[in-house]
Computed example of a mutant assay.
Amino acid sequence: MEEKTASFGIGQLIHHRLFNYRGVIFDVDPDFQGTEEWFEKNVEAGNPSKEEPWYHVLIDQDGRVAYVAERNLEADASTEPVEHPLLENFFTGFNGDHYKTRQTLN
């Protein structure tokens, strides 16, 4: 079994290569975890693989959440914070290049 390594981490600012939006990653899946129906309906651009890492992203100044394949993301060079109503659910602060994750007990 091949070990997968995510290129981006939780709290990291990203830019979507195809849809030109900024965001912050709040969760990572080692491979696609959605349904086949969702994949067929939503994945058109970039021809991503289900076998690569997929990221849950809070979209800046939008209020929506995206589920994005790694190949469609790149690091965001901006040092501006993201504006999203769910930020405080996942993060405690912004240090200029990434968000600090909220500590949770499971």
Rank of each mutant, 00 (worst) to 15 (best):
H98F: 10
K100Y: 07
A75C: 09
F90C: 02
A75H: 12
L73I: 03
A66F: 00
Y67A: 03
V82R: 00
I59R: 02
R102T: 10
T79G: 09
D62R: 08
A75Q: 05
N72M: 02
T79V: 08
S78M: 10
E52L: 11
S78F: 03
F91S: 08
Y99D: 05
T92E: 10
N72D: 03
R64P: 00
D60W: 00
E88V: 06
A69S: 14
F94Y: 12
R64E: 03
A75K: 13
A75P: 07
N72C: 08
K100D: 09
Y99F: 14
E83P: 10
P53S: 08
G63D: 07
N89Q: 11
D97P: 05
A77T: 15
L58N: 03
K100L: 15
E51Y: 13
A75S: 12
F94V: 05
F91Q: 08
D60N: 11
P81E: 07
P81C: 07
Y99V: 01
L73S: 01
V57E: 02
D62Y: 11
Y55E: 01
E83N: 15
Q61C: 09
Y67V: 01
L87R: 14
T79K: 00
Y55I: 02
P85V: 01
P53D: 09
L58W: 05
A75M: 12
R102V: 15
L87D: 14
N89M: 11
L87A: 11
N95V: 03
D62G: 12
N72A: 02
Q61I: 09
L58E: 01
E74A: 15
A69P: 14
G63F: 15
G93M: 12
A66Y: 02
H56N: 10
L73K: 03
D97N: 11
K50A: 10
A66D: 06
I59N: 06
D62W: 03
V68F: 00
V57K: 03
R102G: 02
V57W: 02
D97L: 06
H98L: 08
V65W: 08
H84Q: 03
A75V: 06
A77R: 15
H56E: 06
L86Q: 13
G96N: 10
K100G: 11
F94Q: 00
L86G: 02
G93Y: 09
W54Q: 12
T101R: 15
K50C: 11
D62E: 14
N89I: 05
Q61S: 13
E88K: 13
P85C: 04
H84N: 08
F90P: 06
V57F: 06
A69C: 03
A69R: 04
E51F: 13
L73Q: 01
L73F: 08
H84M: 02
D97R: 07
E51V: 12
T79Y: 01
L58F: 04
L87N: 14
R64A: 08
L58I: 01
Y99H: 04
E51N: 15
G63S: 09
V65I: 15
